[in-house]
Computed example of a mutant assay.
Amino acid sequence: MRNIHLHNIQIADVQHDPSLQRVYGVRSECPFNELVGFHATTSLPPDLMHDCLEGVVPLTMRALFKSFSNSRLCSVNKINSLIRQFPFGLSDQNNKPRSLPYDVVQSDGKVRMSASENWCLFRLLPLIVGMNVPKGNEYWELYILLSQIMDVVLAPKIKVEWVDYLQYLIGDFLSHCAALQPEILVPKFHFLLHYPSMIRKFGPLRHVWCMRFESFHRKIKAIATKSHNFKNLSHTVTKRIQMLKCWEQSSAVGLHEETDATGRHNVPFCRLPVHTREYLISQWKDVDLHISTAQSVSVNGLNLCVVDVVDEVPVFAKVVEILFVNGNLVLCCEFLRTFGFNGHFQSYEVLATNSVLFIGKSQIMYHASDLYNIEDKLLVRMRHKLCGHC
């Protein structure tokens, strides 16, 4: 891996012989190196979005689809049909992937989707096509290895002991790629080798990726398109963004915690289930209760929650009813017993129970997961590996 000493030698060589630019991959000294505490070889973390979600993930999926087509397990038409028929949950609908192009299995084919669509398709692929793939399929094992890697690198909190395991997974994944599909190995695959050391240095790479910047850039592009003013576009966009930020900071809308409910209507206390009435009486004694229910609720964009994590095994609850009691949000949930982790579907298998629990707004964690029924199994596909209350 390039270090400061080697980089300085290469810069000096390039200045003496410009033809070495293509050999070393550098053109000149980085101006930011003049900043105190900064150097281009040590201070720039990798971008998880471009390396993985727009690089390794779609290339691996293309190899997987190509193997399905060649072995007649599942054609591109069949995969597109399964994607269209799949009941994407509420938290996954916003990133619902589009249909695959028919040339995706060709040597020059591509999975033409955005980073969020690539991630949604990759994450839910076991639930969409997993039932058509036999256990032990070597390309499916390749997918599972990358899925385990992504579960770690996308986690907002990472335990120290995970990093060594991540290094082992990456080496195993690259070895499988070299054996099965060496033509897909582009530099972005090599970048994965440096992820464990980068995590040790910068922490979870999710916090330094470009996803949020790309999302904000989309707003800027929308302003540029809708303004129909190309005389001084930078001035127009800058002014509009400044006005938006002024409005957000000066109004209560931009600063308060959002709790948006749909289908909200008042309900008499006597019509509530017995267990709900008993809970409300125990929490709000001698208080007049004004109760309303809602079809759905979004707490800062979240609809469903993971209640707890015990020994790295998540405990789930299914939201059954949404109540507003004197303006306070209360979720009536059914406890779901975690049966175990299904390796083929890369999902937690849960069992419904008759146990009821109530969750207040302060107890809602930021995870938003959907419950899927696949082959009579209730499955929850997590977005990343969990670390306690992360």
Score class of each variant (00 low, 15 high):
residue 255 L to Y: 06
residue 213 F to W: 12
residue 238 T to G: 12
residue 317 A to P: 02
residue 390 C to E: 11
residue 205 L to I: 14
residue 154 L to E: 00
residue 31 P to D: 13
residue 317 A to I: 10
residue 110 K to T: 05
residue 330 V to E: 02
residue 182 P to M: 13
residue 239 K to M: 14
residue 60 T to K: 01
residue 251 S to I: 09
residue 19 S to E: 13
residue 177 C to I: 08
residue 158 I to G: 00
residue 66 K to V: 06
residue 335 F to L: 14
residue 25 G to E: 11
residue 259 T to L: 11
residue 321 E to D: 12
residue 202 F to D: 07
residue 134 P to A: 07
residue 167 Q to W: 00
residue 241 I to F: 02
residue 170 I to P: 00
residue 357 L to C: 13
residue 242 Q to L: 09
residue 95 N to G: 06
residue 334 E to H: 03
residue 190 H to C: 11
residue 101 P to T: 07
residue 267 V to C: 03
residue 236 T to R: 07
residue 144 I to C: 13
residue 242 Q to P: 00
residue 372 Y to G: 06
residue 112 R to I: 12
residue 201 K to H: 13
residue 154 L to D: 00
residue 55 G to F: 01
residue 229 N to R: 11
residue 200 R to Q: 07
residue 249 Q to M: 12
residue 160 V to D: 12
residue 48 L to Y: 01
residue 22 R to F: 10
residue 23 V to A: 13
residue 178 A to V: 07
residue 268 P to A: 11
residue 323 L to K: 01
residue 308 D to G: 01
residue 8 N to A: 13
residue 372 Y to S: 04
residue 363 Q to H: 12
residue 190 H to M: 04
residue 21 Q to N: 07
residue 322 I to T: 07
residue 237 V to E: 02
residue 245 K to H: 12
residue 23 V to M: 08
residue 119 W to R: 12
residue 95 N to I: 05
residue 123 R to T: 10
residue 285 K to H: 15
residue 15 Q to E: 11
residue 20 L to V: 06
residue 284 W to H: 15
residue 192 L to E: 04
residue 258 E to G: 02
residue 308 D to A: 08
residue 31 P to Q: 15
residue 242 Q to G: 04
residue 191 F to R: 13
residue 372 Y to P: 04
residue 207 H to R: 11
residue 237 V to R: 01
residue 5 H to M: 08
residue 388 G to P: 01
residue 294 A to Y: 02
residue 77 N to T: 11
residue 390 C to N: 11
residue 150 M to V: 07
residue 173 F to A: 01
residue 140 W to T: 04
residue 355 S to D: 15
residue 315 V to T: 08
residue 370 D to M: 04
residue 331 L to I: 07
residue 84 R to N: 14
residue 85 Q to Y: 03
residue 354 N to G: 15
residue 376 D to W: 01
residue 315 V to R: 10
residue 52 C to M: 06
residue 231 K to E: 15
residue 112 R to M: 09
residue 187 P to A: 05
residue 297 V to N: 01
residue 45 P to H: 00
residue 280 L to Q: 01
residue 278 E to N: 10
residue 343 G to I: 10
residue 121 L to T: 00
residue 307 V to R: 13
